[in-house]
């Protein structure tokens, strides 16, 4: 008798059990979640084309290596909500409109699941991306200067120019403007809002 066969079948069955539980269940249940339909549209809200392109920049630059996008359950820790990273824990349906769920596994920087609620001014994001210490002293975020271009001011200064002072200011007669990639990335970050309510997640009572 070939004794390889029973061993192989045991391995396959036990492996299949875990696969069924975690992968097949996710695919069949979580993969078929539908948006919550409200009178004034559906939740989570649809994303703009710029934000969808921005998610690709977010992936390419590996923002996920330092920033998570999940507010944890208060039963595990209350610090996420105490830090004002969200009013309620994140649930699977919050990621419905994304191509990739950048849940993240490490926080070298703050959580971004509600960054669009905390900061609403695009200019703040541009300055932060260009040189983070200009808006957050002591920040250790790398400078994404390659998402911007330095150009000569011809006639009127551009409306999009990043306002920079001190050592990071451009030379006289020059200005720093965001590239399309930077604009898309900021549109994506501005879309990071979990400020609506879904039936499966009751709002956390204020302390």
């Amino acid at each position: 008798m070939n004794r390889l066969r029973p061993l192989f079948i045991t391995i396959a069955l036990l492996f299949f059990a875990g696969w069924l539980g975690f992968v097949a269940y996710s695919y069949l249940e979580l993969g078929r979640l539908a948006p919550q339909v409200e009178s004034d549209g559906s939740l989570p809200p649809l994303q703009s084309g710029s934000a969808i392109r921005g998610a690709k920049v977010y992936a390419a630059e590996g923002c996920m290596t330092c920033h998570s996008q999940q507010v944890r359950q208060p039963s595990v820790t209350s610090s996420d909500i105490d830090r004002n990273w969200g009013k309620r824990p994140s649930v699977a349906r919050d990621y419905l409109r994304d191509q990739v769920a950048f849940l993240g596994t490490s926080r070298i920087g703050p959580d971004l699941s509600n960054v669009g609620v905390r900061f609403t001014d695009p200019a703040w994001y541009y300055r932060h991306l260009y040189e983070s210490t200009t808006v957050v002293p002591g920040s250790n975020m790398p400078a994404y200067r390659y998402l911007f271009k330095m150009q000569k001011i011809e006639g009127q200064p551009s409306e999009e120019a990043v306002s920079l002072t001190g050592p990071h200011a451009p030379k006289e007669g020059y200005e720093v403007v965001p590239t399309e990639e930077a604009k898309d990335l900021v549109a994506y970050l501005l879309s990071r809002k979990q400020d609506y309510t879904l039936p499966e997640v009751p709002p956390v009572p204020e302390k």
Binding site: V23, Y27, L30, G31, R32, Y95, L103
Partner: peptide, 15 residues
């Protein structure tokens, strides 16, 4: 290859 909704990606990533 992106054939699954983002809401179901978490468990597969962890798995």
């Amino acid at each position: 290859w992106g054939s699954i909704q983002a809401s179901a990606q978490g468990p597969i990533i962890a798995w």
